[in-house]
Design a protein around this nucleic acid. Structure first.
Length: 368
DNA sequence: AATACCCTCAACCGCATGCTT
DNA sequence: CAAGCATGCGGTTGAGGGTAT
């Protein structure tokens, strides 16, 4: 164990390097090698400490440094190595030619960490995130946001909902209900234009609210993806709709200068009795509150391939389309689309999709 | 156009490690 | 063996650029 580090050298420059300093450092090292870093600054005529020179050289000026974006292979390798080595950035860097530990560390913290979170993977343990408490918090927040938007008035103990994905869809459903509650322009077919018309009718929406919801939605996706044990290229993602399309919708809203007509009565509660049961299923999950609509076991969620065809292409959506899908379990004889959602316990099934198509169809139907 | 906010990443800081004296 | 020294490492910071309001 060495002694404690000295105090900072007196009067040495700190902060960003200038081109002239870089030139001096490169020329000196090319000619003499770096040798003793402590004495290098004096020899090279630099008013820097040796440590600063070493960092500048190893992280930026070294000729063998590879610059530019990380490739997908590099990303995969970093994630793999991190799962084995943890935050041993120098060890990871030694296995990626041309990349520095600092660069990898930064890339991890700014990109890969978030990417894993979106996939429902804990970036520390590299295990799937299945923390129901977190999920509960997310749902609670989501529902609180829905409450703020509109007409949900009954508190919900989401913990009691054993079916997480059902709960996720319920939350989304409720939000969409509120999005469309004021709609006067609805279409019979769920085209993007129709949805634009529907959602644009809302007088109570602000982009900041959308932003909040999208953030929460992302959280939920990560957690649900983790809970379902999906692989990276099987990510169930609604971002294709929720981000890009809502962004588009918001843009359209700006562009069209839509006028709002508040006519709440025109939009019946879309969570109707064909799809919901008042607290009779799942062990009286809402504590016997008869006002609280609850998903029943026969009213599960749409399947993967029911993702709306009008969803615009996005990386996330591309990921979703890679998902190996099964045949839809849609009952063509069902009297309502809602009744056709005959999917058993969603957590027991990987054929789970948090897509929005049926929700959107319901909106269109009820808006008519 | 101005301001606020967010994100990225180069650079810094403090501590650990290993070699030398 | 202990102190001194050089270097490595990982966490953190903050300037600057981009985007949103």
């Amino acid at each position: 164990m060495g002694r404690a580090p000295r105090g900072d050298e007196q009067g040495v420059k700190k902060g960003p390097w200038t081109a002239e300093e870089d030139k001096k450092l490169v020329e000196y090292i090319e000619k003499h090698g770096h040798g003793n870093w402590r004495s290098l600054p004096t020899s090279a005529g630099l008013n820097r400490c040796g440590k600063s020179c070493r960092l500048r050289w190893t992280n930026y000026l070294r000729p063998d440094i590879k610059r530019g974006k990380f490739s997908e292979d590099e990303e995969r390798l970093i994630i793999h190595l991190h799962s084995i080595l943890g935050n041993k950035w120098s060890a990871i860097a030694s296995r990626l030619s041309g990349r520095t530990d600092n660069e990898i560390k930064n890339y991890w913290n700014t990109h890969l960490r978030k990417k894993l979170l979106r996939m429902g993977i804990d970036p520390v343990t590299h295990q799937r995130r299945t923390d129901l408490d977190l999920l509960t918090i997310s749902f609670s927040n989501l529902l609180a946001a829905a409450l703020n938007l509109g007409n949900l008035t009954t508190p919900l103990d989401i913990t009691a909902l054993g079916l997480r994905a059902d709960a996720a869809n319920f939350a989304r459903l409720q939000i969409l209900q509120n999005l469309t509650i004021n709609s006067t322009a609805a279409a019979t077919t769920p085209t993007l234009g129709a949805m634009n018309s529907t959602i644009l009718g809302s007088s109570s929406l602000h982009s900041s609210q959308f932003s909040d919801l999208l953030g929460l939605n992302r959280e939920i996706e990560g957690l649900v993806n983790g809970a379902l044990g999906l692989h990276e290229d099987q990510i169930v993602s609604n971002l294709g709709f929720s981000c890009s399309n809502i962004s588009n919708i918001l843009s359209s809203l700006e562009y069209c200068g839509v006028t709002h007509i508040a006519e709440q009565e025109k939009m019946p509660n879309m969570i109707n009795t064909s799809c919901m049961d008042s607290g009779t299923v799942n062990g009286n999950i809402n504590g016997g509150n008869s006002n609280m609509p609850v998903f029943t076991s026969s009213c599960s969620i749409p399947t993967m391939h029911s993702t709306p065809p009008f969803v615009s292409a996005s990386p996330d959506q591309d990921s979703a389309t890679k998902f190996q899908v099964q045949e839809p379990m849609i009952d063509s004889n069902a009297s309502t689309p809602c009744e056709a959602w005959e999917v058993p316990n969603v957590l027991a099934e990987l054929d789970i999709d948090l897509g929005w198509k049926h929700v959107l169809e319901q909106i269109s139907l009820h808006a008519n």
